[in-house]
């Protein structure tokens, strides 16, 4: 399972990187942590003609936190997120989700940008980006543009990124102090891709009535997605037993799972509801 042949460059500037990508007519790929791309190349599912290694690019490795939210450089690694004590306040949902990503060694190299651009339907980071209305800043030949998460993820392993564009930053909107959240996923083994995962948050008012509910699901169906009907069931409720049951039933009804080698569609449908129920209970608790 040796890698197919390719050219390799590790440019020092974004501009060079973009130019290199453009020069290979869609056959070049950026290389971030390589923890998804390298296995695909080992199986020869991906055979890029050029890898543009982003490791030397400046300014992609920082986590910036201010009143507008959390800005994750594309080369921020999973362990950087786990180790950043500020995030416990600034974005606890992100940390809760990233705790489920892969294994120790992978977390030392796997990156936010790599995961978002790989867009695996079962991966945590794309799910969080979508659930949290993240904005992706990308750089192409024509300069920078910002793509909303809702427009970014197009399907399994498919994004709105152009072949000559590089994701440079993922911005998660600010996390208000009173926000409630939950993250639940279930995988066959620790670190495996989720059979289903749920990220949820909402903003309760003084009386505990929820608004601004966001529910995202991963690992079920063709892509990570928001569950609008479940969100509607949460908004305006006080998250009592009945409301939680209603929301999780809505979530189960809303997903479009398929049978695969790990689980039946019916199981994944039920699991989605169970995980939302548990996520909401942990959010309320």
């Amino acid at each position: 399972m040796k890698l197919p042949p390719f050219e390799y460059a590790a440019p020092a500037t974004l501009k060079e990187a973009v130019a290199l990508l453009a020069s290979h007519g869609g056959e070049a790929k950026p290389l971030a942590g390589g923890q998804s791309l390298m296995p695909m190349m080992a199986f020869r599912i991906a055979q890029p003609s050029l890898l543009v290694d982003l490791r030397k690019l400046p300014d992609l490795k920082s986590i910036a936190i201010d009143k507008d939210g959390v800005r994750l450089g594309a080369m921020v690694r999973w362990r950087d997120i786990q180790d950043d004590k500020r995030l416990a306040q600034a974005h606890p949902l992100l940390q809760a989700a990233i705790a489920h990503v892969a294994h120790y060694q992978i977390r030392n190299r796997g990156t936010v940008g790599g995961s978002v651009c790989h867009a695996d339907p079962a991966a945590e980071m794309p799910g969080i980006a979508l659930t949290c209305d993240a904005e992706m800043t990308v750089m192409g030949k024509g300069g920078q543009r910002v793509i909303k998460a809702a427009d970014f993820f197009l399907g399994a392993l498919t994004t709105a990124l152009q072949p000559d564009e590089i994701l440079i930053e993922v911005k998660l909107p600010a996390w208000p102090a009173g926000r409630r959240f939950g993250f639940q996923e279930f995988a066959r083994r620790r670190g495996d891709f989720a059979m289903a995962g749920i990220a949820v948050f909402y903003d309760p008012d003084a009386g505990g009535t929820a608004s601004n509910a966001h529910v995202g699901v991963i690992g079920v169906g063709e892509k990570q997605r928001r569950l609008g009907k479940a969100e509607a069931a949460i908004n305006g409720s006080t998250l009592d037993e009945a409301a939680i049951a209603k929301a999780s039933a809505a979530a189960s009804a809303e997903v479009e799972p398929q049978d695969d080698i790990h689980a039946s569609a019916a199981y994944r449908r039920a699991l989605t509801g169970t995980l939302l129920e548990r996520a909401l209970k942990s959010a309320a608790g």
Binding site: P39, R189, D192, I261
Partner: peptide, 25 residues
């Protein structure tokens, strides 16, 4: 679990599909 489809195509050709016990299991 080594799995095939009904036509004998092999479905578990990686260690992400064929699940071995790990230290947490």
């Amino acid at each position: 679990h080594l799995q095939y489809d009904e036509q004998g195509q092999f479905l578990t050709g990686s260690l992400a599909d064929y699940l071995l016990p790990t230290a947490t299991d």
